[in-house]
Simulated assay, not measured.
Amino acid sequence: MIQQVNSILEKLNEQLNFIDLEIDDEIKRCEKAIEITLKAKDNLKKIVLKNQFKSQNEEIHFFKDLKPQFTSKLIYYNMIYKIEMKRPNGGNRVLKKYYNNELQKLKAYFDNELDFYKYYRSGSSYLDYKYFLRGEYDIKLALDSYYFEADSSFSTSCDFKVARILANDLIQLYLEDKLIMIENKDFSDKSQRKPNTKLMWTSSKVALIELIYALHTEGVLNNGVADLKDIAEYFEHIFEIDLGQYRRVFLEIRARKADKTKFISALNEALLKRMENYDELI
């Protein structure tokens, strides 16, 4: 069963990556992402209700590590949808205040759930039998009201809290990116000598993001002191491309099961092949 779940999750991540890169309109992107994620979660529920977990440990693993990855995506895209639908019309000052207020809401949730945050982030497991087994709960642990309305055959007392933590991480990145874009919106580029030939990035955005992170990690720009956002903005400018939420895409790249550095590996193989065939190329 776990293998089936992992397969559904991998396919979902691929679909969401495609949507994030191909649909520029944030509202439409969220609508499509929610639609796809709901279908994936419905398939997930059918699998769980049809099969039995082999052990309590497997059940805990599912509700602590796997199901939250589906639910967190629904929370994330739904929250971004609401944030953008309620976004006020106004100048940079108004927008900065609005997005900063949304960040404060995330902090408020963090403060309210501080004990569970510490438990989950520290990798603790001594309360997993209460938090992530169906039918096991303790009213003294301050349960969210939603738990009493949730399907007890497909929910535990805290799997939603884990999903909320994962979603909040992504929402924070989104809001911080928005604030950075606002701060740089009025920045006027200095005149500079332009090359005779205009180069366009014709590979995927994911590949460019992977390259940017590699350059930043190796510290090959500005003696290693260049900020990641500065590098990303530079590439966006010279290639006239919108990388969107590149930090979120990197999280997905990092989650790849096989060949995490797919583009870098392809570059390495191509260059080695060229070196081997050097005599034929000169």
Rank of each mutant, 00 (worst) to 15 (best):
Q4E: 12
I8M: 06
I8T: 05
K11H: 12
N13D: 05
E14Y: 11
Q15S: 11
L16G: 01
N17D: 06
N17K: 15
F18N: 06
F18C: 02
I19Q: 01
L21I: 14
I23K: 01
D24A: 10
D24S: 12
D24Q: 13
D24K: 15
I27Q: 03
E31V: 04
K32T: 05
I34H: 08
E35N: 09
E35P: 01
E35Q: 12
E35V: 02
I36W: 03
N43K: 15
K46C: 00
K50Q: 06
N51H: 14
N57W: 15
E58C: 03
E58W: 10
F62E: 00
F62M: 01
F63K: 07
F63Q: 04
Q69C: 00
Y76D: 05
I80C: 00
P88S: 06
G90T: 13
G91H: 08
V94F: 02
K96N: 11
K96Y: 07
K97G: 01
Y99Q: 00
Y99D: 03
A108G: 05
N112F: 15
E113G: 03
D115H: 15
F116H: 04
F116S: 01
Y117Q: 08
Y119D: 03
G123N: 09
S124H: 12
Y126G: 00
Y129W: 12
Y131D: 00
F132L: 04
R134Q: 09
E136C: 08
K140S: 13
L141I: 11
L143G: 00
E149T: 11
D151G: 11
D151F: 08
S152H: 15
F154G: 02
S155H: 15
S155Q: 04
K161T: 12
R164M: 06
I165R: 11
I165F: 05
I165Q: 11
L166Q: 05
A167Y: 08
D169N: 15
D169H: 14
Q172E: 09
Q172G: 09
L173N: 11
L173V: 04
Y174L: 02
E176W: 04
K178A: 05
E183R: 13
K185D: 04
D186W: 10
D189Q: 09
D189I: 15
D189T: 09
K190A: 04
S191K: 15
S191W: 13
Q192S: 07
N196K: 14
T197D: 09
L199Q: 14
S203E: 14
S203T: 12
S204I: 10
S204R: 13
A207S: 14
I209F: 04
I209C: 01
E210G: 06
I212T: 02
Y213L: 00
Y213K: 04
L215Q: 07
V220L: 07
G224N: 14
V225E: 10
A226C: 12
D227R: 07
L228V: 07
K229A: 07
D230R: 03
A232Q: 03
A232V: 15
Y234M: 11
Y246W: 10
R247H: 01
V249E: 06
E252V: 14
K257V: 11
A258M: 06
A258T: 10
F263Q: 13
L267Q: 04
E269C: 09
E269G: 03
A270W: 03
R274C: 05
R274D: 07
Y278Q: 15
L281A: 04
I282A: 08
